[in-house]
Design a protein around this nucleic acid. Structure first.
Lengths: 340, 340
DNA sequence: GTGAAAGCGCTAACAG
DNA sequence: CTGTTAGCGCTTTCAC
């Protein structure tokens, strides 16, 4: 039932080319009589003409779709990112086709393949981030990649992420300034971009303050809640438990909170807690959680802009943008009270 | 650089059709010599052939894309739904192009238009849900719609949602069974499908228990946190405040929690609280929140299945599925203690 | 000012 | 078992 240019051509008596020109060609390169335009436009709306982007894409070799791959859509972090990408992409007339790699390198690869088959104009990818060989395999000059959030150090594409080191440093310094010395870190998955940056930042802040970080105060091995729970339990069982904890991700912090509650320890009186990531509910926890907020929306927005720029100018030098996170002080950290 | 069927044809000496057949036609309707197949396949991989779905879509009038429109991707509810849709769609070789309507009827309409232009094979839509005229305007026999979560009562399309009434009844009954009589509801946006169902369920449960619901115990007017906060404050200021509160959505519950904390009331000792929606962090609140869990993943999955079925058999009778929510009892409700 | 025609990459009769 | 051909809906040179 969908009507095509030639339907309109037939109805109006004009040729397909003319119809195409008035309906799609914004440039007024063609001087077409106003009258003609009006006739064509009116018939088009009368017939409910809907341009066929598929045909257009085939012809122009441009689909005006961009592919997005994220590691976990159910994670508010990525969900928010995709939302901002969607908003920014729409502004430029782009649609987004979204894939969820489920933190799985194989599915990530499948997703890339699918998106390539769909002939997306470019790809925004928050990579799983452990391997990268499969990414190389799909590199092509035709379809630019932009990496989001999770980078590879040797990357040569456009990329935007957050300064994990800086955020971790800020968080740790906040703890130090509140008098804490025995500070533990609940880390995420070792070897990942985010975790490495956050641990490094933590160590830097400690070093700058002249505090030695004890090995047994660095615990944990993934970004999940259980890890936070177990790690915290472990810390509390020490003969010399930390007075403050820095969680490398919000799920970890949630687990820590559970463990602390179970031990009848109250935050921040007994133990101080800061976390990387600032999920929407952080202010509503008790106590409201002091957290490092990432500029997620900005990240999505910048990603789209980088991609658009590269599409416009494929030979421009790749840019690598590091956004600044921001420590949001709420009530989960209090000055250390030294036992009299 | 992308290579096409004709490239492979040239390389192998076979015709484009033969190449097409071995590369794409799963059906063995054509008896092609094994040897030929091998040659073609090997050249294809050697050249890094990536099928062009755009061209395919144009020819077959099937893009193998489905459009998704949700009201707010940053809402964990929709994010989870999209994730499950993505998973289910992938199983059948479908990609999803996602739009965020930002709870805005106009953007919703724009999104539909875009998706139609993209010639998606079908549409899954969690509609804003207030108006529906704009939806009608785009109804066409070519592109089936499936409604998710938010329905219109007079809808004639496939649809899957959750039994809001039942969930609200269960939650309210739980409160009643714990001895509560003065029960308030913090409602969401009046007139929406979700809110109407939830309020109705609440009233039913009260009626069934022979408890009169006082008008001033029905407060609030949207699904946001602030509404929950203000509503709760209002309730607490009454001469005869409720002993239990049912929040119609999780953001509302969060606001309620804030208000209660501010008033130094402790849940569940002083006030009991149940909420519709069970966001991932509910178990980690203090106290862990008793909540009505919606079968979100199942909803996405069913939505895709309905759409796929309709694509296969366009004339089948529309189905309207109501999924059962589940009350998850945690620690935010306690038996009412009557002052001695 | 407007039209004719070619072609984007693919599939599906139809033919042999 | 394989090739020829037409055409999906659109844009764009080139022509008049």
């Amino acid at each position: 039932m969908t009507c095509t240019l030639s339907d309109i051509a037939r109805q109006t008596g004009f040729s397909v080319s003319t119809v195409s020109r008035v309906l799609h060609d914004n440039s007024n390169r063609y001087k077409i009589r106003e009258e003609t335009k009006e006739v064509i436009r009116s018939v088009a709306t009368a017939l409910g003409y809907t341009p066929n982007k598929i045909a257009r894409g085939l012809r122009l070799n441009r689909t005006h779709q961009m592919g997005i791959i994220v590691a976990d859509l159910a994670n508010p972090f990525f969900a928010t990112m995709v939302k901002s990408i969607s908003k920014e992409a729409r502004k430029s007339g782009y649609s987004i086709v979204v894939c969820d790699s489920d933190e799985n390198t194989h599915l990530e690869e499948e997703s890339i393949k699918t998106l390539m088959e769909n002939r997306v104009d470019g790809l925004l990818i928050a990579a799983v981030g452990v391997e990268r060989e499969h990414l190389e395999r799909f590199r092509s000059d035709d379809v630019p990649f932009v990496f989001l959030d999770r980078l590879y150090d040797d990357i040569s594409d456009d990329a935007v992420s957050v300064d994990n080191r800086k955020g971790a440093r800020d968080a740790t310094e906040h703890l130090i300034q509140n008098g804490h010395r025995r500070i533990a870190i609940l880390q995420g998955l070792p070897g990942t971009y985010a975790n490495t940056g956050r641990v490094t930042g933590f160590r830097q802040a400690m070093a700058d303050a002249g505090i030695e970080v004890r090995d047994q105060y660095v615990v944990g091995d993934d970004f999940g809640t259980l890890n936070g729970f177990l790690g915290t339990k472990h810390l509390l069982r020490m003969e010399d438990p930390p007075t403050a904890i820095f969680a490398a991700g919000y799920l970890i912090a949630l687990g820590a909170l559970d463990a602390l509650r179970e031990e009848h320890l109250v935050v921040p009186r007994d133990v101080a807690l800061v976390t990387f990531d600032d999920p929407g509910f952080a202010p509503h926890l008790s106590p409201p959680l002091t957290a490092v907020e990432q500029p997620i929306e900005q990240m999505g927005e910048m990603g789209v802009k980088l991609l658009l720029r590269r599409l416009r100018d494929p030979s421009s030098a790749p840019r690598r943008i590091l956004l600044e996170p921001r420590l949001i002080v709420r009530e989960s950290v209090a000055p250390l009270v030294v036992p009299a």
